[in-house]
Each structure stands twice: as structure tokens, then as C-alpha cells.
Design a protein around this nucleic acid. Structure first.
Length: 953
RNA sequence: GCGAGAGUGGCGGAAUUGGCAGACGCGCUGGACUUAGGAUCCAGUACCGUAAGGUGUAAGGGUUCAACUCCCUUCUCUCGCACCA
């Protein structure tokens, strides 16, 4: 009995494709090209997750579909294989990360191949391949060699950086330093999470509540020399270039949000070089300063005699009743009056100890300290007190703000806390319910309105006022328009072993100490390989593990000078920033990519991956790509034309009930969530046990799910993220073994829309397997002893109905695949199969067409049936079936007839009937006619031959 | 708090521009064939009602001949960001 047996069929075709190199892409596209890319996976030790094949199947369907439509398809796969787990494994077991990584890659490769994806495996790359990261390092050298010309809005070679005369006058070292400060890759002392007990530096996500995730050891923030990438220089372009991309608005919004552009003004508040009497600026000096500013204009950088603030609401300047600087602000010392010194110092130290998280968590309760000094509000020249508070972030804007408590929630809370004056300067308008409270200073109002308490500007609408006052202050040299971004420069170094080494050398003096001069490795001397290491245990200092590398790696002598290698490594993001370029020309040893091939294949036409990379990976990759564009290495502004995020696949739906310790039930309504996901009784607070309830023991009552045994006990029903600890992880290998790869692929596509989050249901896999079984039996004679065509399949013409259904199916499936609406495409093919299975005679032509339609989604069974139908070659390049709209049209159509919007009958009319004929038929219908009797027809609507509606009285 | 997305049968989900709500699948019920079935085939399956009929797309309101779809208000859930001035 030749039953459908994927365990035989699938390996057979996988071997065929591999042996014949069916899916090897041409070096350059022949005819129209299509570059379809999956976000390449991190090959973790756990193997493939069912989430991976979701996106991979979607791209595979598109690729197979478009090959049949004559496109030259590039569809590669590789590995994002640097990463912490391999290093942690090495620390535990002494097994080198490369060994673990390669083992994991082998597992992933085997699993992906078992799912029949049509990758061009000849192009496989791993970020950990030395020949790959050679070019990652090469790109770093480009970043190092580039400065951002803000006037030209373009990255340019560092050699073209204009050197100010006063810098060149100071000599070569000063020039070098000046250049280093302007490179896109630069060094900075930045705080890291140092855990003395573990002897290692931790990533932010490894620190929870001030202690290490592993072991719960204390973590302190210490400054360490780091490499930074100047992504902020590209913030504007990263935002504005989103516009032309075919990405969902949601993802664009996420990126815009992350970049966080806000426009406003920088305003200088005069403080004087030295504090005057009572901490207030000296009036005479202040006047002098104002006159000078009027002449000189607004300087690029603020001197120590002013506090420069950034505001998006310059219109509220008259309401700025105090100024706040961050505890890290460079002028803290100058601002602090002698009698406040102890208090200020204590406050700043305390703030330094808090992590970023602590600072924001305690947002409700504002803290701060008065410096004792005052700054002059440029709107009215009045002195306002200067405070220090950690609600102002040092890293954003200028690290100082003008506080307008009447119109900013945070300033309002702070003013209330410390009893500072609140002056309303924006009138919400007479229509506003809260106007009286706002004008009385009892409520904060952050929206637009009209100006008040703002001298000659009173009555000006907010938007107009903003530009007016900014222009006026700019004229006086006290402010300028300014743009700020939430986006920060990218901390690009990690204190890990398992990452790309930086191609940078630090010059040493005769005593072996760094001189501060950097030397980039010559591009032709790349790659800088990782040194062989025998010991992976942390050496106990915050410096990177490569500090313990063998001396002959660590120290280099070039041109008679001694250098020490950079021992930081790059973050995991680095390799994934450009892998899509390497896939185009993976074996090129002379260049990152052949420019002709880049031009031919880029951009990526379709990029599918998880939403977890919606911000960082995409932003970083776009940034690198723009730098490469500026430097003439690539020709496209943007790498990813169309982006789709597949939704998460959750575990099976779970019904949960709650029990007390004695086993008695508690209704879910009385359960609240405590810490660590513990369930607590809402009233008594006692801890409850969450137990899984079988679906047979639950029933729906009204809107809620209750116990069959006791309808008073409500239950929770939801699907959870798959996780080892919950024990709801589905292993794709098991599904392939039990149902076959085609069933897994088909099920994941049938679950629902690609972008939706959906729960797994194994019964659903069984369902699509049933469909494949039916397709098989529609074509294969399952009663014969040998594999042979079903006797019902005959080389005869199609009946009119068969033809109509065939052509309709071709049309719908084609459209649905184009829209990435695979669930409905599958439904249409199920309808086809249900119909044709019922036919005594199944024309061969129809069978061949359905096999072709099915082949992108379930390629193995399709190839097998295609072969059985007498085609010795793969169907991968068969032309995609076409349809004839004329054949889909029916000779008669059924039209529902409504009276007052309710369906009361149906009529059958010739397809070419005009509106008058349709109306006549509707009036004459035996169900409709009696209902119309005695009524006045006010209006008759005949909608596109799809519906008739009588409006009667 | 801000931003994005979603809410349709017992479940996953369908429904070009507003035009027959519930395609397709799971599950369930009944039947056929069977020694047997987790195989296969047939029929039924939103809810209330014996029926005629009525009611239904988170809740409420609106626009329209006609609303899952458009507008307003509210609620719930998911995801992201979170003192960004």
C-alpha cells in the first residue's frame, strides 16, 4: 500500500536537491532578480525552535514561487555565531568556544536541511569564520577612517577632516587627537557592570536589581575604556530614510521612537564665571555679557559662564522658575556655594551609586539639592535658583534643563516636593475644564494654548510663540534652534573572548606604557585572528580576557615601534550588520563584495525575522550600510526594502485553576499576581497553587471559563511563551518525525497571519497532515501494491465546473502568496481538494496544476507527485500556472435580496443581467413579492450585482 | 504614563473598495464501512427557539439603504519604550 510516507519522500528529495544543486543561485541574476533574506539565527545549544521555521518557511514559499515565475532568486543562510553562551560554556567545561559553536551549527544545519528549505548552501557563512570577520574588521577600519561632515551630511575620509589652525599649531600629537575625536569609531571611558565575585563584566540584562543574574553577587558600575560608534551622527538620516521603505508602520514607529528626534531650542542662562553676592550673577558683568552676546551671536559650545539648557518648549521660558542640572554636570562644582558643598557632594555620590534602573524606578519620588547659586532667565533677566537632581539625565540634551513646573509633569512634581514657585504661562483656553486649576497653579498643563504672564507675548498661540521667542533670543545671541535625539552612540566593545578582535594597535613607549596614539592595522594585513587560548576562566580584573592572551599575539612590533593589541572584542551585533552583503559574494578574498554584484543583487527585496530585532539589529545594520554608502562601497542608501516581522509562536493553550494548600478551589477572579509570578489570594493574600485543568473539566459560561464541577470557580485560559521551565517547548525534530516536514511547514503557515502571535496546537498539525494525505490519495492509487496514479486521474478535458474551480484556485492562491497570506492560500487548496476528491474523473491537467500550486508550501510531496505524474525533472523551475478570468465567470449568479438590510430571499439570474433585470427578478421572487405587497418602495439599491436591497415604508 | 497592535463560534482563524458574518482547519455530535480504529467516507455543528422567527463580530453611541469594516467614548489583552525636558 503506497501510503503517503514523508519519512521516505522527504529525505529522497532533499538528497536530490542537494546532489543536483537545484537551488544554487547564479553568480549574477539572469533576468529580474529577487533577494529574499531570513534573519540568520544564533546557533544555540538548544537547536532549532519552532519559531525559526515560521519565517523561514514564509521566505522559502516566496522564493520557490518566484523561481517558478522566472525570477533569479538569491536565498542564502548563515550563522550569527559569536555570542555569550559559547563563552560561558567554555568557562564551565574548558571546551573552546569554536568547538561548541561548530557543533551547534552542525545541528542547526541538519535541522534546516530536514525542513527542505531552498537555500543556496554554497553561500553559507558564519560570522565566526576568520575569512568572514576579516571583512567585519575591514568595515571597522572604514568606520575608524571616517568622520561625519555635518554640513555635507555625509561620512568622509578622516584625511579630509579640516584641522583648525590652533590645533595644527600644537603639533602632530594634537592633530592625531583631534582626528581621533572625530572618527565614527572613537574611544571613551564609559561605565560597565563589574562583578568582583564573578570576576567579569556583565551585560545590562545580566544584572537584575543591582546584583548578578547568576549567583546574585553585587555589581558595581566602574568606568572602563570603551569603543563607541558615532551612530548619532546618522540619526537624522536613519529617521528620514525610513520613509521610502516598505516596512510596517509599527516597526517604523518603533525605530523613530528609539531615535527620538525632538526639536526645540538651546538657551543660555547666565551664571557668571564666579558666583556673585548671594550666589546671584553680578549685574554689571551680566549686562556686559549680554552686550557681548548681542555682538558675537550664540557660540557653538557653551562657556563656563552660562548654563546651556535644551527645551522643546521655549514658549514657556517666562514660566521657568528654576534650573536643574544633572549630578554629573561639569559645572556642578562652580555652581555649588561653599555652604552647600557637603550636601551637594553627598547627593552626587549617592546618585553615582544608583544604576540607571534605580533612578527611573524611583521616579515617583523626586530627589534633589539646591546649589545655592542662581542663573539669569534670559526672558526677563530674573535670577532663578539652580538645583541638582537626578531626574535630569546627563546624557541627554545639555544635561541641564529650565524647569517650568506649571507645564511639565516632572518639574511640577519636583516643585511641589521642594516648594518652588509655579507660574502658569500657557492658558489652556476658555473651553478647558481644568483652566481654573491650571491658572491657579494647582494643576500641570503640558499641552498647547495661548501665552500669558509672558509680557509682550501674552495671547500668542504656543506654536507661534515658540518660533518668535527662539528667533528673538537667537538675535540676541542667547539661544538657537536645536535638535536632540534619544539615540545614544553605540557602545561597541565587549570584555569577552568570543568576538571579533579590533584591528587596532596601541602604541607603547619605551617603558611599555600606552602613549595614547592609535594605529590601525593595514587592511591588507587583515584578518586579526583570535589567539589560541588554553584558559577560559576569568582572570579577575575588569579588563577583557584577551589581556591574558599569549604575549606573541598581544605585542606587535611594526616599523620599529612596539604596540599592544586592542583586547576588547566587538559585540555580537557586528557580524549581523553586513552579512547580507557577504551572501552576494561569499568567497571573495579580494574585497568585501564585488561592486558589480552588489549593484546587481542589492537591495534585499524581502527580509523576514522576529520582532525582537525590530530596533537594534535593523538600526545598526542600516547605520553601517549608510557609512559604506558614504564611502562608496555600496550603492544603496538602505539595505532592506521590504521587511516583515513574523509573530511569535506560543505554547499550547493552557487552562489554569487555582487551589489553596488544602486543595480547595479559588475562582480566578479572586487571584492576583504577586512577585516572581506567584499567585496570591486577592483578599487573604495566601499563596495559591496554579494547576493545569484538562479542557474536558472546563466549560464556557457567559464570558468566562469555569470548572464543570463547580461553575462558581472561574479559570484562566491563555497561551504562554515557550520556555524550558514551563515545559511547553515544541521541538521541530519531533514534529518532522511524527508528521513530516511538509506538515510542519504547512501547519506553521496555516496557523494564522504571518505577523500575528499565535498559540501552537499539535492537533492542528494533524489536521494539515490529513490534508496532505487527501492530496496524496486524490492522485495516488492507495489500493495498488506499487506506487501508481489513481485510476480516476485521466487525460481528459475538464468539465466547465472543474475548469472554473481550477482557475479560481490558481487565481486565489497566486494572489494570496503575493500578499504573504499563506493561511488563506492553503484554505483555497483544501477547497480544491475537497471538490476534486469527490470527482469520479480527475483530469490530469488539474492534478498537475494543483501539484505545482502546492509545491512552494509543501515541496517534498509535490516533487514526489510531480514525478509520479510523469515528469523526471524537478518542478522547481516549472512555469507557475496561469488562470483565465473568463473561465472563472459563471453563467448564472446568485444574488441575495434584502428588505431593509435583512436578507429575505435569493434570486438566480444570468451573469450578464443588467440592474433592471435583477430588480425585476427580485420583485418577482416568491419569497420577496409577498413581503413587498402593500409597502411603498422608497429606494432600491443594486450593489455591483452582488446584492439587492429594497428600502420600504 | 507614552507609542504600536489586537479583541469575531468550544479553539486557530476567514471576510479586495462598507454589500449574504463565521471560508478553511481543529474539536464535537450522528451515521456508513469495519474484528478493531488515533484509518477512511458521509451529514451536522454561532447563539436562543420544537418551529416560525429572533439575536449576534469586546461594551456603548453615531454616520449609512447597508457597518467586523468608517467616526466618537469606554473596557480588556499583547508588545515596545519609560524622568529623553
Amino acid at each position: 500500500m503506497p501510503r503517503y510516507n514523508p519519512a521516505v519522500v522527504e529525505p529522497k528529495w532533499q538528497q536530490y536537491w542537494e546532489a543536483k544543486k537545484t537551488f544554487a543561485a547564479a553568480k549574477s541574476p539572469v533576468g529580474p532578480k529577487l533577494y529574499v533574506l531570513d534573519m540568520f539565527p544564533y546557533p544555540s545549544g538548544n537547536g532549532l525552535h519552532v519559531g525559526h521555521p515560521e519565517g523561514y518557511t514564509a521566505t522559502d514559499i516566496v522564493c520557490r514561487f518566484e523561481r517558478m515565475n522566472g525570477k533569479s532568486v538569491l536565498h542564502p543562510m548563515g550563522w550569527d555565531a559569536f555570542g555569550l553562551p559559547a563563552e560561558q560554556h567554555a568557562i564551565k567545561t574548558q571546551q573552546p568556544p569554536r568547538v561548541t559553536t561548530e557543533k551547534n551549527i552542525a545541528t542547526f544545519r541538519r535541522q534546516l536541511k530536514s525542513l527542505g528549505f531552498s537555500y543556496d548552501w554554497d553561500r553559507e557563512v558564519s560570522t565566526t569564520d576568520v575569512e568572514y570577520f576579516r571583512w567585519t574588521q575591514w568595515i571597522f577600519l572604514q568606520l575608524f577612517d571616517t568622520w561625519y561632515d555635518t554640513a555635507a551630511k555625509k561620512g568622509r575620509p578622516i584625511a579630509e577632516l579640516p584641522i583648525p589652525a590652533e590645533v595644527s599649531a600644537q603639533g602632530g600629537l594634537a592633530v592625531d587627537k583631534y582626528r581621533d575625536e572625530h572618527r565614527l569609531a572613537y574611544q571613551l571611558e564609559a561605565p560597565v557592570n563589574w562583578c568582583p565575585n564573578l570576576g567579569t563584566v556583565l551585560a545590562n540584562e545580566e544584572v537584575i536589581g543591582g546584583v548578578s543574574e547568576r549567583g546574585g553577587h553585587p555589581v558595581v558600575r566602574i568606568p572602563l575604556r570603551q569603543w563607541m560608534l558615532r551612530i548619532t551622527a546618522y540619526a537624522d538620516r536613519l529617521e528620514s530614510d525610513l520613509e521610502g521603505l516598505d516596512w510596517s508602520e509599527g516597526i517604523k514607529a518603533l525605530q523613530r521612537n528609539w531615535i527620538g528626534r525632538s526639536t526645540g531650542a538651546e538657551v543660555d542662562f547666565y551664571i557668571g564665571r564666579e558666583p556673585g553676592r548671594n550666589g546671584k550673577p553680578h549685574p554689571a558683568e551680566f549686562k556686559q555679557w549680554r552686550d557681548a552676546r548681542g555682538a558675537s551671536g550664540f557660540p557653538r559650545t557653551a562657556g563656563p559662564e552660562v548654563l546651556r539648557v535644551f527645551t522643546t518648549r521655549p514658549d514657556t521660558l517666562y514660566g521657568a522658575t528654576y534650573v536643574v542640572v544633572a549630578p554629573e554636570h561639569p559645572l556642578v562644582e562652580r555652581l555649588t556655594m561653599p555652604d552647600r558643598k557637603a550636601e551637594v557632594q553627598a547627593y552626587c555620590e549617592q546618585a553615582a551609586r544608583k544604576s540607571d534602573l534605580d533612578r527611573t524606578d524611583l521616579a515617583k519620588h523626586k530627589t534633589g539639592v539646591f546649589t545655592g547659586s542662581f542663573a539669569a532667565n534670559p526672558a526677563n533677566n530674573r535670577p532663578v535658583p539652580v538645583w541638582i537632581a537626578d531626574y535630569v539625565l546627563a546624557g541627554y540634551g545639555t544635561g541641564a534643563i529650565m524647569a517650568v513646573p506649571a507645564h511639565d509633569e516632572r518639574d511640577y512634581a519636583f516643585a511641589k516636593q521642594f516648594d518652588l514657585p509655579i507660574i502658569p504661562v500657557v492658558d489652556p483656553g476658555e473651553g478647558s475644564k481644568i483652566r481654573a486649576e491650571v491658572l491657579g497653579g494647582a494643576l500641570c498643563y503640558a499641552d498647547h494654548g495661548t501665552a500669558m504672564n509672558s509680557s509682550e507675548y501674552d495671547g500668542t498661540p504656543t506654536a507661534e510663540f515658540k518660533t518668535k521667542i527662539t528667533a528673538e533670543l537667537a538675535r540676541r545671541g542667547e539661544a538657537r534652534e536645536a535638535v536632540n535625539y534619544k539615540l545614544r552612540d553605540w557602545l561597541f566593545s565587549r570584555q569577552h573572548f568570543w568576538g571579533e578582535p579590533f584591528p587596532i594597535l596601541h602604541e607603547l613607549d619605551d617603558a611599555g606604557n600606552p602613549t595614547g596614539r592609535l594605529r590601525a592595522i593595514a587592511p591588507e594585513s587583515l584578518p586579526v585572528n583570535l589567539p589560541p587560548m588554553t584558559e577560559f576562566k576569568p582572570h579577575g580584573r575588569p579588563e577583557p580576557p584577551l589581556e591574558e592572551a599569549p604575549q606573541d599575539w598581544l605585542y606587535v612590533t611594526l616599523d620599529g615601534k612596539r604596540y599592544k593589541r586592542e583586547t576588547n572584542t566587538m559585540p555580537q551585533w557586528a557580524g549581523s550588520c553586513w552579512y547580507f552583503l557577504r551572501f552576494i559574494d561569499p568567497k571573495n578574498s579580494d574585497a568585501l563584495i564585488d561592486p558589480a554584484l552588489e549593484k546587481a543583487w542589492m537591495p534585499v527585496d524581502l527580509y523576514i525575522g522576529g520582532a525582537e530585532h525590530a530596533v537594534l539589529h535593523l538600526l545598526y545594520a542600516r547605520f553601517w550600510h549608510k557609512v559604506l554608502f558614504d564611502r562608496g562601497i555600496v550603492t544603496m542608501r538602505e539595505p532592506f526594502q521590504k521587511l516583515v516581522n513574523q509573530g511569535m509562536i506560543l505554547g499550547e493553550l493552557e487552562i489554569t485553576g487555582y487551589q489553596r494548600a488544602d486543595g480547595s478551589w479559588v475562582s480566578a477572579r479572586d487571584v492576583k499576581e504577586g512577585e516572581n509570578e506567584k499567585s496570591l489570594h486577592r483578599q487573604t493574600g495566601e499563596e495559591l497553587r496554579a494547576v493545569r485543568v484538562a479542557s474536558a473539566d472546563a466549560k464556557k459560561e457567559g464570558d468566562s471559563l469555569v470548572l464543570v464541577a463547580d461553575a462558581a470557580i472561574r479559570l484562566d485560559s491563555r497561551a504562554y511563551k515557550m520556555s524550558k521551565s514551563r515545559g511547553n517547548v515544541i521541538n521541530p525534530d519531533d514534529v518532522v518525525k511524527e508528521y513530516g516536514a511538509d506538515s510542519l511547514r504547512l501547519y506553521e503557515m496555516f496557523m494564522g497571519p504571518l505577523e500575528a502571535t499565535k498559540p501552537w496546537a499539535t492537533t492542528g498539525v494533524n489536521g494539515v497532515r490529513g490534508f496532505l494525505d487527501r492530496v496524496w490519495r486524490m492522485i495516488v492509487n492507495d489500493r495498488a501494491d506499487e506506487l501508481e496514479i489513481h485510476p480516476a486521474v485521466q487525460a481528459v478535458p475538464l468539465t466547465e465546473e472543474q475548469d472554473r474551480i481550477l482557475h479560481r484556485t490558481i487565481r486565489d492562491v497566486t494572489q494570496d502568496i503575493r500578499r504573504l497570506s499563506f493561511n488563506t492560500a492553503i484554505a483555497k487548496m483544501m477547497e480544491f481538494t475537497n471538490f476534486y476528491t469527490g470527482c469520479e474523473v480527475r483530469p490530469r491537467e488539474a492534478m498537475e496544476k494543483i501539484v505545482l500550486l502546492l509545491s512552494p508550501l509543501a515541496p517534498h510531496i509535490a516533487e514526489e507527485l510531480w514525478e509520479l505524474l510523469g515528469h523526471p525533472e524537478t518542478l522547481a523551475y516549472e512555469p507557475w500556472p496561469t488562470f483565465d478570468e473568463a473561465k472563472i465567470r459563471e453563467s448564472t449568479i446568485e444574488i441575495p435580496v434584502q428588505i431593509l438590510g435583512k436578507v429575505r430571499g435569493r434570486i438566480i439570474v444570468p451573469a450578464d443581467a443588467d440592474d433592471a433585470a435583477i430588480e425585476a427578478a427580485a420583485r418577482a421572487d416568491e419569497k420577496i413579492a409577498p413581503l413587498l405587497e402593500g409597502k411603498t418602495i422608497v429606494k432600491t439599491i443594486i450593489a455591483q450585482k452582488r446584492l439587492v436591497n429594497f428600502v420600504v415604508k
